[in-house]
Design a protein around this nucleic acid. Structure first.
Lengths: 153, 153
DNA sequence: ACTGAAAGGTAAAAGGG
DNA sequence: CCCTTTTACCTTTCAGT
């Protein structure tokens, strides 16, 4: 399914998506064409979903990151609530979860005032939402990709 | 600080980091060299932190994503606990937070059995940790970058 | 399934307005 | 601050093994 060369290619590009296929080829003693073929294979298999530029939100003026656990009035309200959350650009991630919350979201905003307005005027204003719990992140000391070492084959 | 062209470049590359500078230049009626200069400027300013390949963890056999809220025995235990969490490759993100938890982490594992072992044998075994709450993610319907539209300049 | 070579395209640096 | 030019390198395709 996925061999050692695939893993090295993935690891390299997950770390820096702009490393040239030629460099990867050189380091692994294969031709650039082979690297190209492997990448295309993994893209078609859905393993590779794209390449994203990583930006620092703080450098752009988004200083506050927080997580919000959402309790819905009824379980069936999930699709409607999600659609309304998706319309808010400040909501960067959403998860449908087990446990006390139905939906768990990550929001990135400029400052605490913006967070307060977002919470009160736009999130708690959503009909389907019963209540929310907010967790403000002060630091983000770990942010990395899944380790491929646990991959067996 | 950051003008309209910078914003268009960021938006384009945040979506697809492999779009060529030549294409971006064409769409904005500037030269490829200008795009190159802008990207370098933003890299030096720390706005651009790199380009990452986006992979689908499920396609690689990591089927379970979850969040774990961690309560420490003492607030001062934070650095030691964090270092121990960092040593676990399954911990892909960590946040230092206000509220009921001191540390909030995201973990990605192969299955529920692995999650259970990780939790009991490696996380709850950390001396500095008093207790944990786990939130299993069943779906991840929203995963996107910060919207640049709120950016003033 | 990998390689080597060819064609076209791209990045990055240099120089000028 | 942006442009054009230039050079070297890169991706991608395809025939051959």
């Amino acid at each position: 399914m996925i061999d050692n060369l695939d893993k090295v290619i993935l690891r390299t590009l997950m770390d820096n998506a702009r490393v040239s296929y030629a460099d990867i080829a050189k380091n692994n003693r294969v031709s650039p064409a082979t690297v190209h073929v492997r990448v295309e294979k993994m893209r078609k298999a859905g393993i590779i979903k794209g390449a994203k530029l990583k930006v620092d939100p703080r450098k752009l003026g988004f200083d506050v990151t927080c997580f919000i656990g959402i309790i819905l009035k009824q379980a069936g309200d999930y699709p409607r609530a999600l659609a309304k959350l998706e319309a808010l650009s400040e909501v960067t991630e959403a998860f449908y979860t087990t446990g006390q919350y139905s939906i768990f979201i990550k929001v990135v905003v400029r400052n605490i005032d913006d967070l307060q307005r977002l919470l009160i005027e736009r999130i708690q204003a959503i009909d389907e939402i019963q209540s929310t719990d907010t967790l403000i992140s002060l630091q983000n000391p770990i942010m990395r990709d899944v380790g491929l070492d646990a991959l067996g084959h």
